[in-house]
């Protein structure tokens, strides 16, 4: 419990950065939800668009991973 203020800031920053991971989850959910609603409207076109679904999810998720990485860097470096 004798950590410095700088250490406190480190942990606070890491926690704040971790919010970004949660926001990425929102993004991935939006992608998947919109894909699903589109697929239910037009099931015949759904199969050809799964690749696009995964690409979109990957892009959305990458930014969340960046936030997670920032949190890790603040914690351990």
């Amino acid at each position: 419990m004798e950590g410095s203020i700088a250490e406190m800031g480190q942990f606070l920053g890491a926690g704040l950065a971790a919010i970004g991971s949660g926001l990425a989850a929102v993004g991935v959910g939006t992608v998947a939800g919109n894909y699903l609603s589109g697929a239910l409207r037009n099931p015949s076109a759904a199969a050809s668009q799964t690749a696009m679904l995964f690409i979109g999810m990957a892009f959305a998720e990458a930014l969340g991973i960046f936030a997670f990485l920032v949190a890790l860097l603040l914690m351990f470096v």
Binding site: A58, F59, E61, A62, I65, F66, F68, L69, L72
Partner: peptide, 12 residues
């Protein structure tokens, strides 16, 4: 992004 997506996902 290509590298950090993969590495970060597995590490996380």
């Amino acid at each position: 992004s290509h590298s950090i997506r993969l590495g970060g996902n597995i590490m996380a």
